[in-house]
Design a protein around this nucleic acid. Structure first.
Lengths: 231, 231
DNA sequence: ATTTATAATTGACATATATCAGTATTTTTT
DNA sequence: AAAAAATACTGATATATGTCAATTATAAAT
């Protein structure tokens, strides 16, 4: 009966890899033959905005951020955990450079899939194509939610949102060691580092979270949720 | 040699309708048989966030805004002129309500296309499916640009952006009568009505635009562009 | 043509959040 | 283990932009 999306600052999806289930055995072989696995260390650049791209990137394991950048600014579009595509922008033949960058938050493994093979699979396997269409439109919806959140909510709400997302969707635990820096958090929330720090302290002193350095413990989901909704 | 997207607050695309060229004569007939045309007057609601949806909407003629809303806030996702889809979110069978609303800025005609027929066409015509995939990923890119702009640029830059977009891409003329209210402009720029008015006056007094009420005349593209880039 | 409603404008004021600059802490390197 | 570098934190201050309230102009309705 809820008529709204859950507008959350967090964008993370969790089932992309499933689309490959629609492939036949033979198609799977083709896919494997025309893709490579690459390992990245924490902090390394997985793809660079503006660089040539002739492949689609799937995160096999790890965690990365996808972002767009200019000389001065940077905006994180989404977090991508294992099992999900970095993005689908480079399927289109007209898109021959990456429109975004991605870097690894933790040691990660990705699979690069040749674009023309990917397109061939789309052409010959309709069920697969439909899955991709569903992934693309779900992705849009998620970005819409994040967009709404970052432009309409106040800073406390955005931060509360991200904390909940990290606990519930990324790490799936109330206690976790955060591999992101305060600066990363700031970029995720669309605010300055200093503000993040002050607000985290506020949450901490009010007992909503416990925090020592990178160690986080989310205590009061209920209140954070409320702040996320009203903030 | 430019390695960045043009990050613009404006989101308007201009070739969706072309995807239907890929259909066969027979498929065209099926499409026509399973779609209806509906006319809307200025200001009327074309689709409502949260309402049941079993169809895809194509703007045949006119101009509309697609936006998401809560009790208190509203964010315009994009402007949709004739020839373009309102959105593709409702192709996915799991998405049985509209995740956004749309209203007409001017008298408009839309074509509602039955979802299951649309999916059938996707299944049986690969070229069509590929076109849709391209449209979806282009749409994501546009939203990314708008997202970046609204979260990273200052208000002057966002407004300059929107003015340029209206002149260059929506009305394709330096002089135009704006069917949007100042409030609409404000929502497009993600700022308050009053700020829009004040800034428009500033632009006006600096000779970047001429403006009497709803009549706009864009004079100094160069300067507006600079403000959009640096603001 | 008057009245009513809606939209546009202006000014005064408030405030959320950024910026800057300095210090402390943690992590990395040697 | 010491030095260097990177990150985290704190306080003081600035400012862009929002909010509120009042006024004027425009459009719609009777």
């Amino acid at each position: 009966m809820e008529n709204t999306l859950q507008f959350t600052a967090c964008t993370i999806s969790a089932k992309h890899r499933g689309c490959f289930d629609k492939l036949t055995e033979k198609e799977h072989q083709l896919l494997e033959k025309s893709s490579v696995k690459v390992s990245y260390k924490k902090g390394e650049v997985i793809c660079k905005q503006g660089a040539f791209a002739s492949h689609i990137i799937l995160m096999e394991e790890g965690l990365s951020k996808v972002f767009i950048e200019t000389n001065t600014n940077s905006l994180i579009l989404k977090l991508v955990p294992g099992g999900n595509f970095i993005g689908m922008a480079t399927v289109a033949e007209s898109q021959n450079v990456f429109p975004y960058s991605a870097t690894a938050y933790i040691d990660s493994v990705v699979k690069q899939i040749d674009r023309s093979v990917f397109r061939q699979l789309l052409t010959q396997n309709q069920a697969f194509a439909l899955e991709i269409i569903d992934i693309l439109s779900a992705n849009s919806l998620q970005i819409y939610g994040r967009f709404f959140c970052l432009t309409q909510k106040q800073a406390y709400g955005r931060l509360a949102d991200i904390i909940l997302c990290l606990a519930e969707r990324v790490f799936k635990a109330n206690e976790f060691d955060l591999p992101l820096s305060r600066k990363d958090l700031a970029e995720l929330c669309g605010m300055s580092q200093e503000t993040v720090i002050r607000m985290l302290n506020k949450f901490s002193s009010e007992g909503l979270i416990k925090m020592t350095g990178k160690q986080f413990h989310v205590i009061d989901h209920e209140s954070l949720n409320k702040i996320s909704r009203t903030g």
